[in-house]
Amino acid sequence: MTAVFKREFLSYFRSPVGYVALALFSFLSGFQFINMISKGYISISSEIVSLSSFFIIIVPIITMGLLSEDKRRGTEILFYTTPVNLFDVVFGKFLAAFALFAIMFVNVIIHMIITLCCKGKVDAGVVGATLVFFFVAALYISIGLFASSITDSQIVSAIISFVILLVISLLTTISQFAQSGVASFLGATFCKFDPAKAQSAGEKVAAALRWFNPLDKTQDFRYGIFSVFPLVFCLSFALVFIYLTFRKLDKKRWSQK
């Protein structure tokens, strides 16, 4: 695992990808920080939260080549023909992308230090936002990793993970559409004489969709209100996608087709 982690992490800095992602993140966070300074009010926690909304662009850039490049260049043969465990390969690659996020976060730490020097405070809200940052990043990276395992083209992989992440971040809007759509469909067909029932069915569908939104669940963290469930949610879904990726690679050894 450490071998794959080391190789993959260093390869971010052997190609422009790592630098581009770091530069993009530094620009976004710096821009926000300057913007807040010019308004005379600094909130590190809201800076972190709004940075998380750029994950849908940064994560696909970072994860697109993780496994698809190995497939295209034929280097995946190394993982299949040496006694290395495939799960270690997948987890090593996941950790490499996660470590890059940790490095990006150094920007925010610098901003925190500046705030502290200006007699500001780092409160529970900042800790909460930081937790959200890393847990949501883990979830998104695992999705990107999975997208990278199903194709041998970096572009296709980036597009797939971008679309999945876009859908996740738009879940609130999508759930509103689903609510009115389901309610009016049921009202016109199965529940013609019971509009209240149709309405409640629509609400349930919307609630079910919203349940999958990690950003919705972690909204209160930035105010210093923590709960364990959203973190467990992110972590378990991240593990599910890492496991799916592992199965996708392992399939090649077993599949009879």
């Binding site: 390869s11 190609s15 034929g74 995946e76 043969i77 190394l78």
Partner: peptide
Amino acid sequence: YLPELPPLYLDM
């Protein structure tokens, strides 16, 4: 194993 296309990482 040496496959038809050697599994090399060109950036190393």
